[in-house]
Amino acid sequence: MLELKDLKFDVDDGERKLGIIDGVNISFPEGKFIVITGPNGGGKSTLARLIMGIEKPTAGAILLDGEDISGKSVTERARAGLGYAFQQPPRFKGMTVRRLMNIASGKELSKDECCGFLSRVGLCSAEYINREVDQSLSGGEVKRIEIATLMARNPSIAIFDEPEAGIDLWSFSMLVETFKKMQKDSKGTVIIISHQERIMALADYVVVIADGKIAKQGTREEVLPTLMKEFSPSCCAMRGGEA
């Protein structure tokens, strides 16, 4: 199980300290589908980066099955079972989709296996498998490949940072189906940072982050009805990426 204990992350802008994450406590229920939501700039993405080790917390602990991993590197966390899909995935000159999928899964995938993951994110696989993950792919394609790599990796805890950002409406519907299937089939814990009502509707558990703090957390039934009232509808509208 993944737990955050009084997690803090400050940045120093030269004049004063800003608390981006300000004492967050969450116990992510194991094997569940969890959506972290909240207004832009509230600290959601930072929280995901802290969990994966891309940022180091100023204070507090990140416990994975009881062990504090907050001092561990990204690689160590990945090997311990954490997975992370970037909001804006990098591109690689010369690296094929297939190679990236192989690295993700940790073994040579057969063509069929590789295609299987790609078709689950709506990419016509035969066409993509030997393409390079470079500028020749659109933002939406790179984003979908990113999600497919995480599926190939099959981590015990998968974190998706705004999977909907940069994806067109049609692809998004496909993505909702993908996550629906994941919610049903995945044995691991899935944590999705999202603004999307249709993704929130899949959640077993919802965490609302605003101003670096937890505004609310609980089951979907507990949180969603009040969320719709408390926050302006715009926070649930279709949006582009968040920095």
């Binding site: 891309i54 990945a78 690689f92 010369g94 190679r99 790599t149």
Partner: peptide
């Protein structure tokens, strides 16, 4: 960073990036 999140060390990631390039 991306390749590290897939379990590679920084050295392995660097080699992978250069080999591909």
């Amino acid at each position: 960073l991306k390749l590290c999140t897939l379990g590679l060390t920084e050295e392995e990631a660097e080699k992978e990036i250069i080999d591909g390039f």
